[in-house]
Write a protein that binds this DNA or RNA. Structure first.
Ligand code: FES
Ligand code: FES
Lengths: 157, 157
DNA sequence: AAGAATGATACCATTAACATATCATAAGGG
DNA sequence: CCCTTATGATATGTTAATGGTATCATTCTT
């Protein structure tokens, strides 16, 4: 029941660093030692982010990763979705038969609402806001920028 | 990354039923068949709730469970805490060394705030509100009633 | 050509979630 | 009284999600 998993946590740290060092191409080895993150693990994470067009990668000597988007356009929710797929805090537990009124089950409805509010805040949190320390996440604000149609996450493997 | 686990979901269903049939003592067998919930599993759940003074139990033939508290005083957050311990959406992943500023790490601070808002809504949701269908969970409202000091959860086994 | 990097992917380990099984104890009805 | 029905407590098993390694292929720089 933890919103932020390691993937997300590691990703945030790496991205924040890159946000503070734009232009610079950083290698996994560098980041790994810098933040004491297991090398291979971090590598997989950054490769995912590259596949999702959040990072730009270059191979070979002197290669590594750098941001492909402006830090203010990388949302915390984006990262979570990369690692977990579409965010859903309330999958129904009852297989068809049991729940007579799936459509308006009060628990489901209530939790959906809570989820919706949390999502607004997660979308208001960006790498830029994290770096600046300004908590952009005030409940009720809508996040700026258009969200693209859809994107495969890293679970469909 | 699901807020509501089965334990909570099952518990809510059972409690809602009891709320609608106060006085009546319901057995696990009854509830189990009624909602198609695995018998032994539900049993453990209700036993936990009894230990946490949410339910009152009676043994022997004709025994079972009934509410010990008024439905409006059983909070959704209470149930979640019974099964997961104190709610914490943001355990830090970095062992001491790595994060220089644990105290005011922006990610931690931000997520804590989101958690806090969600908690307010979870505390505003009660068995009574679920039964009535009135979503008592409006962001920003403080839940009524005093919370007791502390209570062991079902993970400390 | 060598070396340093990512791309892709398969694999392993640990933990949490979900579920069952069992023995003990208590209460009620023949 | 003893048999049945119930909970109390707790041990055990199963599955899925999370956290972490390993390896081979490819690309780029020097
Ligand atoms: S419990 Fe699944 S929709 Fe109500
Ligand atoms: S990453 Fe752990 S406190 Fe900042």
């Amino acid at each position: 029941m933890n919103l932020i998993t390691r993937d997300t946590d590691y990703a945030v740290r790496a991205l924040c660093f890159m946000a503070q060092n734009p232009e610079r191409v950083v290698s996994v080895t560098d980041l790994g030692t810098r933040f004491a993150i297991p090398r291979q693990y971090l590598r997989r994470i950054l490769q995912s982010l590259a596949r999702h067009n959040i990072l730009e990668s270059s191979r070979g000597q002197g290669g590594g990763f750098k941001l492909r988007k402006h830090p203010s356009r990388i949302l915390l929710s984006d990262l979570m979705e990369v690692f977990h797929g579409a965010l859903d805090f309330t999958r129904c537990v009852f297989r068809s038969a049991a729940c007579p009124n799936q459509a308006n089950c009060p628990l489901r409805k209530t939790v959906k609402q809570i989820e919706k509010n949390a999502l607004i805040e997660l979308r208001a949190t960006t790498i830029a806001s994290l770096v600046s320390g300004h908590p952009a996440a005030k409940a009720g604000r809508k996040a700026p920028g258009k969200r693209p149609a859809k994107q495969r996450n890293e679970k469909s493997r």
